[in-house]
Design a protein around this nucleic acid. Sequence first.
DNA 1: AGTTGCATTTCGCCT
DNA 2: AGGCGAAGTGCAACT
Lengths: 231, 231
Amino acid sequence: MRVVIARCSVDYEGALVAHLPLATRLLMVKADGSVLIHSDGGSYKPLNWMAPPCKMVELEPDDEEREQGVASVWLVQHAKREDHLRIRLHEVISDSSHDLGIDPGLIKDGVEAQLQALLAEHIATLGDGYTLLRREYATAIGPVDILCKDAAGATVAVEIKRRGDIDGVEQLTRYLELLNRDPHLAPVQGVFAAQVIKPQARVLATDRGIRCVTLDYEALRGQDDTTSRLF
Amino acid sequence: MRVVIARCSVDYEGALVAHLPLATRLLMVKADGSVLIHSDGGSYKPLNWMAPPCKMVELEPDDEEREQGVASVWLVQHAKREDHLRIRLHEVISDSSHDLGIDPGLIKDGVEAQLQALLAEHIATLGDGYTLLRREYATAIGPVDILCKDAAGATVAVEIKRRGDIDGVEQLTRYLELLNRDPHLAPVQGVFAAQVIKPQARVLATDRGIRCVTLDYEALRGQDDTTSRLF
DNA sequence: AGTTGCATTTCGCCT
DNA sequence: AGGCGAAGTGCAACT
């Protein structure tokens, strides 16, 4: 990895056209050739970048550029698309390279799959007498997260999201529409379960007769035995 | 901005739990206190990070850590949430700081707003005799991108996307449902306009009587006068 | 390889 | 500030 601190201006042309005026920034050139341009703020997203596969060539500035104080020009061209990044370096403050090797990568725990597993394990969270039929119940338009039965024996389809958005309600609605055509299952009730449910999503769900349940990840996890933890 | 190259392991605990095994990586500490951990690959997304507002403190390793070769521990705590990042540095290969100043920021051109403006300006792209009623026509469930009339005087609602996905069709369907309840507007036809329309979205739209139109950004722009360009 | 769905999304607009 | 939609989204899992 090469890390350069430099006063530079940047022009990107591809899916959109974008320009960065002259300022001091950090340029990161990764082993795969990708380039990131970071400022001293914002979040993890760079001001501008070029995704791999791409190739960087260092050019001599032309007369006009040289007159404006450009010391060197980096042209980063995407290998497959008509995307390129032109970085005009006016002053290089620091330039160093390090061999990082390949990274073992991130180990995660606690996303939607985990929520689904926990809720399946403690399906009574939805109500007394609820029993699990299946996780990832396959349908023609995709898998239903959880299929279960309520105390009265009626089928219930559960859609789980970390954030309950309107999209999730639409998805569940499509599942319910399909499931209710199956005489073996119908009538099927819907439950929209998420850690946070957006007001609009709640309104839409309620309007369609879908019950909303907010999930408490920590509480679900607390009920769980602690032997199967990663850490 | 502080840039450190170090052999380190990382543990994150917050919305999820994640771990990075010992390896050589780039650590970026920005002026706002945020921390990014980059490997030599992937795209612009770091392996792990802490978003601002947050605070970093450097701790002495405890006995167990010291025994495992930990030279220093960085604890990055989010200011508002129960999120923290623990970086255990085993070997610091490089450590440097630079004053970057505030960045003037990115100047963009060519996204959905641009498409909407261009299509509104050249609404006849949808058909001869089409006339614009309104852009961003407000409804209870959100703004309709473009409302116009066809040659016969019938109302047409247009939803514009860069990429025409199934979600966009659902969105337009909801608008049409609502607009068609208004006797002043009904019957309202739907047009789904995008630079690229996914096959599934096209099938769903057609099934619902919604016309699909693919937009040629360059062609629309070509029709446009060239006086109002940014570059 | 193309497609689908999620994300510690981030970002910007608007209420 | 909070909600909502878009992103040059990235990323992994699945067909």
